[in-house]
Design a protein around this nucleic acid. Structure first.
Length: 492
RNA sequence: CGGGGUGUAGCGUAGCCCGGUAUCGCGCCACAUUUGGGAUGUGGAGGUCGUCAGUUCGAAUCUGGCCACCCCGACCA
């Protein structure tokens, strides 16, 4: 009972924090705003990485690595991008410490060791990468460049939350260079689809694909595409973005290529990324008051087997049944843990693996040995049933698929529930306050209206959905004419 | 970065107002009995009271700086 989790209804933020800490995903560190990702949390991230990395490779991308530091002069080259990130940059100004003559055993910054030019710790890598691409690209034959990097970045946030917003975070950033605008736009949308596919089919979260409004657009982009997810508390979360960067960075870094026709032209660019923030999304999508719920495809442990026995001989009898079963499951690429640790009793283990979100639990005791059965508990529905041990591997295999689907179905229902069409500003505010979720409303297309709405309701335009059907209407705020509804929500 | 709150053993806490080196529960270690939903008994280990300085004969307790976390605002993936 030492690991009590605050219930979602009592305090959603506290619940979220309790899950992260108690399920051993991450911890606060000694560094302000930075977290320690613990082995169990990192194992989930690694599964995400592996899956995404494979998807990137399948779409023709290769990995590379660029420096953590960006010289200030490069950083400021693309003006809008630089301005957008200026307020949250960490800056290296010195390169050496020395012993403090006034305080024994202490170090101080050596004033002699000031850098000629400050180095910016990357908040994103467009600048350093496009400076590099300049040297890589001369002819249309050098294009496209389809590079991804797995890296850490630093954004000095005012307020941080584990996984959702930390000063340093892990992500991948794809940076591509193309000969034509069309090709770059196709790439931007393709990678958005990759993200949507991953989030829906691995994380079991439905998303709305869309384009950001000018206000919410990535600094330096022509267009920002996004996938927006809906959390259990009715708040939206941007799960991934893909940017069509136009020729902005090519201009800033003078990256030109010769076409087949021998004309010198500017290169077209995209960039796209998802981060450890996905961990936060995963938690807030499926988990409950008993702890974490992980979709089978991302679970570091998919099946845990808990023996219930009396004495050492009892355990041996059970192990004789369990070990071959474990092997059979592993042959089907199912990750199994047989927890035969005698220090904890079964009830404790049940609670522990529920807290950690293991999708399937198999309990096996004397009674089962006699009957040729096991008890199967599924984490998503918290139900239990007695199942014959014969062909259990096939049963489990199907159960995992079933749980994966069930989680997605539940999340889809939630998104449907949390999507409301409104036609007046009064309903708009009422829906946000009483129900939350996405609000589909007409908008006149101006930044001023968007800002006013944000000021008054804290809701932002999450995106203009890609699958929008045109529909004539009047802006809920200004009453001006509008051609389509856009997606508003309060967001993380 | 502004307003409010918190920091005592791995975790949760009492003590603080009214200064005299610390309470309880969980966890941990040993042994025994246990094992189908977070076991029980007995014995034991563990604390420079966030940190640095000040006041004092003496500081968890009073004062100040710093650090971290939580809540609310501005910023943001």
């Amino acid at each position: 009972m030492s690991k009590a989790i605050t219930s979602q209804n009592t305090d959603y933020s506290k619940w979220y924090n309790d899950i992260v800490i108690n399920a051993n995903l991450a911890d606060h560190s000694a560094v302000r705003g930075c977290m320690v990702i613990k082995p169990y949390g990192y194992a989930i991230w690694e599964k995400m990485q592996q899956t995404l990395d494979k998807m990137f490779k399948e779409t023709g991308h290769v990995n590379a690595y660029f420096p953590l530091f960006v010289p200030k002069s490069l950083f400021e080259a693309e003006e809008k991008n630089a301005e957008g990130f200026a307020k949250e940059c960490a800056i290296v100004t010195h390169y050496r410490l020395k012993t403090n003559p006034n305080e024994k055993g202490k170090l101080m910054v050596d004033p002699e060791a000031k850098l000629e030019e400050e180095l910016i710790v990357r908040p994103t890598s467009e600048a350093i990468i496009w400076n590099t691409y300049k040297g890589w690209i001369q002819s249309y034959r050098d294009l496209p460049i389809l590079v991804n990097q797995w890296a850490n970045v630093v954004r000095w946030e005012m307020r941080t939350r584990l996984f959702l917003r930390t000063a340093e975070f892990l992500w991948q950033e794809g940076h591509t260079a193309h000969a034509t605008k069309e090709e770059a736009i196709i790439e931007t949308k393709k990678m958005l689809d990759v993200y949507a596919n991953f989030v829906e089919n691995w994380m079991a979260m439905p998303v709305v694909k869309g384009v950001k409004s000018a206000n919410e657009r990535f600094a330096g982009a022509e267009d920002t595409y996004t996938i927006e997810a809906m959390m259990q508390d009715g708040k939206a979360l941007q799960a991934g973005t893909s940017h069509f960067l136009g020729q902005n960075f090519a201009k800033a870094f003078d990256v030109k290529f010769l076409t087949k026709e021998n004309n010198l032209e500017l290169v077209w660019a995209t960039s796209w990324g998802v981060s450890t923030r996905l961990m936060g999304a995963l938690i807030m999508s499926h988990s409950d008051d008993k702890g974490l719920v992980i979709p089978p495809k991302l679970a570091p442990i998919q099946v845990v087997i808990v023996p219930i026995h009396k004495g050492a001989e009892g355990l041996t009898k059970i192990s004789n049944i369990v070990l071959p079963l474990k092997e059979k499951l592993e042959q089907k690429n199912i990750t199994v843990k047989f927890d035969d640790d005698d220090a904890q009793r079964p009830g404790w283990k049940f609670a522990e693996y529920e807290l950690k979100g293991v999708p399937v639990r198999i309990a096996i005791g004397e009674r089962d040995l006699a009957n040729g059965t096991v008890e199967i508990a599924r984490r998503d529905e918290l139900t239990k049933e007695i199942v014959s041990i014969n062909e259990l591997d096939i049963y489990i295999e199907n159960l995992l698929i079933n749980i994966q689907q069930n989680l997605l179905e539940k999340a889809k229902k939630r998104m449907t529930h949390f999507t409301t069409k409104v036609d007046s500003y009064q309903d708009f505010k009422k829906t946000l306050d009483e129900k939350g979720g996405f609000v589909l409303a007409h908008w006149d297309g101006t930044s001023e209206t968007e800002e006013k709405i944000k000021e008054e309701t804290k809701a932002t335009i999450r995106c203009i959905p890609l699958n929008n059907t045109p529909e004539k209407g009047l802006c809920v705020y200004s009453g001006k004419e509008s051609t389509q509804r856009v997606l508003f929500a309060r967001a993380y």
